[in-house]
């Protein structure tokens, strides 16, 4: 008999498989599947009177007819795509430097330096940006000291600041997959490209980027998803003007206690997020297991 991992257990261990699958099934059914089905159900009902509900699309109709909700949704998606693109453009040369230019000890030190800030809570990192950028902050004082501006400048609460914070927070999830994929690119391929008359631009375009595609795809997917679902950074750095969709969900749930429309918003965000992830996987011809594994 061929010994495969499964056959060591033997057929007599069917019971074992069932026992082992119990926590998995409990976890998935009770905490993932049923809650999301329930979320969908709640989003599809309307309160008729106290304690009485009827099936209706009212919450979704409200979303599409109220410009504030719709605009916030589109704005969140656009800003997330922009943040993903910026993270890629800023992170790619850094990943290349770590993977291909640095050697030996310096390489692991640089890589570690990239990782460590992200073990610190997002709250602390955002707090740092607030201290740097606020009216009485470090940068404002520096500009005044340097004589570039006359009075204090408020750099918080605008879109550029939100973008700086989002790119900062997402950087790790771009750099790690990029470094690992660039590490696997053989130097001789790059040398061959130069030998055949290529220059830095053509070699990057025709050899490095095609090779790095799987890493680019997984980095972009993860960064987009995290940005879309972010609450802290837009809220703290953008203040009242941030208009982030997760804030709308929070307002519906916690402030207005309108769970029906909050659920509809949540579901719409989930659909958008899944759609983009799916699209990214299709375009890069990958599966979800490759990307996270």
């Amino acid at each position: 008999m061929k010994h495969t991992p499964g056959s060591v257990a033997g057929n007599g261990l069917k019971l074992g498989v069932v026992l082992m699958a119990t926590p998995l099934l409990l976890w998935l059914v009770l905490l993932v599947i049923l809650p999301h089905l329930d979320l969908l159900m709640v989003s599809l009902r309307e309160r008729v009177s106290y304690g009485k509900y009827a099936f209706s699309f009212a919450n979704y109709i409200e979303f599409f007819t109220e410009p504030l909700y719709w605009n916030t949704y589109v704005r969140t998606a656009t800003m997330s795509i922009l943040a993903t693109a910026l993270t890629l453009v800023i992170g790619f040369p850094i990943s290349y430097y770590i993977a291909k230019v640095m050697r030996g000890r310096g390489k692991s030190v640089l890589f570690l330096m990239c990782l460590i800030p992200f073990w610190v809570s997002e709250l602390v990192r955002t707090f740092g940006w607030m201290i740097l950028l606020r009216e009485s902050g470090v940068l404002s004082h520096f500009l005044q000291w340097a004589g570039l501006v006359d009075g204090p400048v408020e750099m918080l609460y605008n879109d550029v600041t939100i973008m700086v914070g989002l790119v900062y927070t997402s950087m790790l999830f771009m750099v790690v997959p990029l470094v690992s994929v660039l590490d696997s690119l053989d130097d001789s391929l790059i040398e061959a490209g130069y030998d055949l008359g290529g220059n830095a631009f053509t070699v990057t375009r025709d050899i490095v980027i095609p090779h790095a595609m799987p890493g680019i795809a997984s980095g972009c997917i993860v960064v987009f998803m995290l940005t879309l679902g972010n609450y802290l950074t837009p809220n703290l750095l953008g203040g009242k003007s941030s208009l982030w969709f997760t804030e709308q969900i929070y307002t519906q749930f916690i402030t207005r206690f309108n769970w029906e429309s909050g659920s509809a918003f949540g579901f719409l965000l989930l659909v958008l997020s899944s759609l983009i992830v799916w699209l990214g996987l299709k375009l890069s011809r990958q599966t979800l297991s490759d990307t996270v594994g």
Binding site: V32, L39, L228, L269, S273, V292
Partner: peptide
């Protein structure tokens, strides 16, 4: 089942939170 098991990674945290809130 494996696909389902890794799906929580692509669910935004806020939505995971509200779905569990609504269900419980």
């Amino acid at each position: 089942l494996y696909m389902l098991a890794i799906s929580p990674l692509v669910i935004p945290g806020v939505i995971l939170g509200i779905s569990i809130l609504v269900f419980s």
